[in-house]
Design a protein around this nucleic acid. Structure first.
Lengths: 231, 231
DNA sequence: TGACCTCTTTGTCCTTCAGCAAACTTGCGG
DNA sequence: CCGCAAGTTTGCTGAAGGACAAAGAGGTCA
């Protein structure tokens, strides 16, 4: 097995302040792994044995209710840490992580967490920044769910995915990983039927263009208006 | 001005591992302050200049939408840290804190945060535990808002307040701070009218007994059933 | 004690959206 | 190339709960 290249980590915030030799050390302890679309990286409630860094692809962090309904808590983009239960002193994962598209991630055993935060300058800070952002995002979703109508929430969810993972194509901006109507309903607390109706309507209005598991936003500004421009 | 008594902090988790002399040091740097019911402790978006510890009373952490609607994000009970923006590297408060009842809190300038976490054993750990719990609670609220009907959410909200602050009285368990129908609607994303109807119905059923700003849960188990026993 | 403000209750109407049902499309595996 | 599974669309119906309206009940302050 060939060694991982140092350039993998060089640009990433948690490691940006580190020496080449330190990055080497970190990489030598990392376990790289590829995940197929739909594959589970870790499961809610299981022992948190490793923490992860996404190099490529997209991850959905999902909670399942006892009724069997799923709620998408979070999307992870390349370069982000995830499954960082140790940062919160938890010893089980609070949610399940599933690859939204084919993905590549590194992971380390949790016992290295303490070492990383102590030894590598900027690592702890950056991790807590991430946490803060996620907390803020969750806040926003709570207020959305509590105060906004379904249409606005769906619009906001689309916009969020676009900002987190949008890539420019000729028609507009495309969401870079596969998304189903059901997925969107799981992000917004509605049904896939309602999402389908909304997307159909927006398609007719020329705001989005969608095919199976694939969405391009052609008029983001109009979506912003629909979303009620929260925050 | 008289010195603060060391026993104030002795039992509290963030300080439980510390020496008497260390607690003295910490107290000497603290600014104690009393807040009337309804008084604001800090405001969303303002510079986070201090972090706080609630000694007595109850705090509501509130977000306001641009439409002017309020959402209650969190309740703080005595012994808990709050306004800990520095833990997440934020330099502004993410929400507004209001005293739900007459309250007493200590506070320290944020520049001491780094010192506290570095110097006092257990302080950092405990803070991040708290954060983890709050994150988990927010998760729970998101799934509730996304999947449960209003009645279940209101029942769950009552139960949450009862567990966090309930005190036993002869009739049942009483929520230890003033709560209005509007407050509950702000916790559950509904209207005060709907909350009023629910409470009236429950009163008729002998599940709760409520007077103005004041709620006693007389049959908690039945409320658990109504809440759908989430989690 | 009276005026006022906040909190609460209750009624009626009406919109939104979930639930149910069924058909259609697309892609994949055998 | 066919069959099947997963994803999507669309119509219909009904119920939950938000919006609007109005009045009653404490509490507080002058």
């Amino acid at each position: 097995m060939s060694k991982l290249d140092e350039s993998l980590l060089t640009g990433l915030p948690p490691f940006s302040l580190l020496e080449r030799s330190q990055i080497r050390e970190i990489l030598d302890q990392a376990l790289p792994k590829r995940y197929d679309e739909g594959a589970e990286i870790f499961h809610e409630g299981h022992d948190a044995e490793r923490f992860h860094l996404l190099l490529d692809g997209y991850i959905r962090v999902v909670k399942t209710t006892e009724g069997g309904e799923q709620i998408i808590a979070l999307h992870i983009s390349p370069g982000q840490l995830f499954g960082i239960a140790p940062a919160l002193n938890r010893d089980t994962y609070p949610a399940t992580a599933v690859a939204a598209s084919e993905s590549l991630a590194l992971s380390w055993p949790v016992r290295l967490w303490g070492e990383f935060t102590a030894k590598y300058q900027g690592f702890a800070t950056e991790s807590y920044n991430t946490l803060g952002q996620r907390l803020g995002e969750m806040q926003t979703r709570i207020t959305e769910l509590a105060t906004q109508a379904v249409e606005q929430r769906v619009a906001a969810a689309l916009l969020r995915m676009v900002t987190q993972s949008g890539r420019k194509v000729e028609e507009g901006i495309e969401i870079a990983f596969p998304v189903t109507r059901r997925n969107i309903s799981e992000m917004t607390g509605t049904t896939l039927h309602t999402v389908s109706r909304l997307l159909s309507a927006w398609e007719k209005d020329g705001i989005v263009h969608s095919t199976r598991k694939h969405i391009v936003v052609t008029a983001p500004h109009r979506l912003v208006v629909l979303s009620g421009a929260q925050g």
